[in-house]
Simulated assay, not measured.
Amino acid sequence: MHARHLRARLKGWGGVGAMAAACALAVVFALAVTCTGSVASQAADPHRAGDRTTQAHTADAPRAADDCEAPEKQTLSPSRADGPTITAIKNRPGEKRKLIVGVDQNSYRWGYRDPNSGESGRLEGFDIDLVHRIAEDILGDPDAVQFKAIPTDQRIPAIQDGRVDLVVRTMTINCSRLKDVAFSAPYFKTGQQVLAPKSSPITGYDETLANRKVCTAKGSTAYAKLEEDRGSGDLPASTDISTTVPNQLDCLVRLQLGEVDAVVNDGALAASQAAQDPTVELKGEAFTTEYYGVAMKKDADDLVRRVNQILVDFRQDTATGWQASYTKWLSATMDDDPSASRPPAAPEYLRRS
């Protein structure tokens, strides 16, 4: 995530001006939209693991829900079996027989609308690839998806209210969220980082943030971390963290307008924002370790297990799976070596029910 990773990043995005157009599109498409883009079906994976093997992996493991020392492990073992949640999705009539998924539409390379793609309104990115994979496995059609664009702080309410079946939106698995929703096993590893202008004296998540305004997204783990650290003295008390916005990209706009001095965000997203604007850069190293997961209703056990099985296949599929998606979308903005971002090769499933 150094300057060399910013080479020609604006090609295909159209620079900051086009980014403003993308923001305008975000307003137009803020309501539910149906995906019509064509995505090639992924090749069948010859290494699909059997249900008995994966379910036996941690069959008698205790559930650490109260202390939640490892939130990324608090999920159910994989299975391909249909249950009530999946059956209800499959039984939707006619054109409604689709997976309803909450996503972002302005996170560059993750879930976004490229105004230069030639296909108006088509969502693409790493998270979008995963959504199509899930839809193909459950409904037999990668395009059987209804996308709903939701802001950061609406991810959990959208699940609880039944507006979506899943949220695939760079959503960090943590103990607080596990009280409200269920998560899959991790599909991406990241950590919080500081984004600031290249000319800024800010050097990272340190004392150089004193007397500086920092922007975060509402309901994000970044804001929670800043609030906790400022209270404990690990962040200067004079750091102003009052600026919060509905979506991460809004922080980049605030930074460009000079309304804030820095942005704190997941490093994976911050790297994509740096690719959109060559005048900013990541400052310092990641200061947390976090994992993205697919979020679902707490009682949707069969869907959690099915998604976990899909993630097993996604990781193992070297042709059209995790590695291929990383190479296509993220290697240009992050690093050609994905090792730091890979989810656990052998995830643990400590939740029993």
Rank of each mutant, 00 (worst) to 15 (best):
G12D: 13
Y326V: 06
E136G: 12
C35M: 12
S325I: 03
Y349P: 06
A237P: 01
G204F: 00
Q74T: 07
T34G: 09
S220W: 00
A88W: 03
A346S: 13
L166E: 08
L282Q: 03
A49I: 11
G83R: 03
T152V: 11
D337M: 05
A270W: 00
G37W: 09
G121N: 10
V39T: 11
R122L: 14
G14Q: 11
Q256I: 08
S331A: 12
A262I: 05
G233I: 01
P236A: 03
V260W: 01
E207Q: 14
D180F: 07
D45I: 14
D261K: 07
P186Q: 01
R169P: 01
A30K: 10
R52F: 15
A346I: 08
V181Q: 01
L31E: 13
G231T: 04
A8F: 10
D250V: 11
E290V: 00
T190M: 00
R48I: 10
R92A: 04
L249C: 08
K298P: 10
T36W: 15
P201T: 02
Q256M: 12
R305T: 08
P142M: 15
T327N: 09
S353G: 15
R113G: 09
R52K: 13
K90A: 02
I159F: 06
D66A: 11
M334Y: 09
G258A: 14
M19V: 13
P84E: 09
R52Y: 14
N308Q: 11
L330I: 05
T85P: 06
V164Q: 03
I134H: 09
V145L: 13
V103A: 07
L282A: 06
G121M: 09
A26P: 14
G111M: 08
R48L: 15
A340I: 01
E228S: 02
D141N: 15
T221Y: 00
G191V: 02
V264L: 02
D299T: 14
A24F: 15
V131E: 13
D45N: 12
P344A: 07
S176P: 02
P344F: 04
D335W: 01
E95V: 14
D129Y: 12
V194P: 03
E227D: 15
P343S: 06
A30W: 05
R306S: 03
L269H: 01
T170C: 07
A135G: 10
Q105M: 14
A319I: 08
A32I: 11
S353E: 14
S339K: 07
N265W: 01
A271I: 05
G233V: 06
A70K: 12
L6K: 13
T54N: 09
Q154V: 07
N91A: 05
S242M: 06
S184E: 02
G83S: 06
I100C: 01
T208W: 00
Y187W: 01
A340N: 00
P157W: 06
V245R: 07
F188R: 00
A81T: 12
T208E: 02
L6C: 08
A237E: 06
V253G: 02
K98M: 04
A70Q: 08
D234N: 15
E228V: 00
F29L: 10
P151D: 15
V33T: 12
G94Y: 04
I202C: 03
S242I: 08
D261A: 10
R7G: 09
V245Y: 04
D51N: 11
H2V: 14
P338Y: 05
T239H: 02
